[in-house]
């Protein structure tokens, strides 16, 4: 179970939100494709290492999953953790989840 803090932290950064936008457009991207999209489509001057670090934060929050296929590694969008955010405030009083932060 991913802590809500990790999800909010991951979503707080505009570059990470752009990465999620691109993965929403097409799931299953290599690091190279993600870097290409950020630099060519979004004109973000960002190093591959920095993109890797952003992906690690997104992965820790459960928003991005990776899978190996043969020699390649692909990144997929996982929107399931976002449900925690939606349900936290939107569900009825009887099933309201516990507060995760004081």
């Amino acid at each position: 179970m991913v802590v809500a803090d990790d999800i909010f932290k991951a979503l707080a950064d505009p570059t990470r939100r752009t990465i999620l936008d691109e993965l929403a457009e097409k799931s299953g991207q290599t690091l190279f494709e993600i870097c290409s999209r950020l630099s060519m489509k979004h004109r973000l001057g960002i190093s591959r290492q920095a993109v890797s670090q952003h992906l690690a934060v997104l992965e820790a929050a459960g928003l991005v999953g990776t899978r190996r296929e043969g020699r390649y590694k692909f990144h997929d969008l996982n929107t399931a953790p976002l449900r925690q955010i939606a349900e936290r405030w939107l569900v009825s009083d009887t099933s309201r989840p516990e507060e995760s932060t004081p």
Binding site: K26, Q29, T30, F32, E33, S36, R37, M40
Partner: peptide, 15 residues
């Protein structure tokens, strides 16, 4: 292919 054709401004690439 590990990257399908991707249009990025004036350039389209695939891998």
């Amino acid at each position: 292919f590990t990257q399908e054709p991707l249009e990025m401004g004036p350039v389209t690439t695939a891998v």
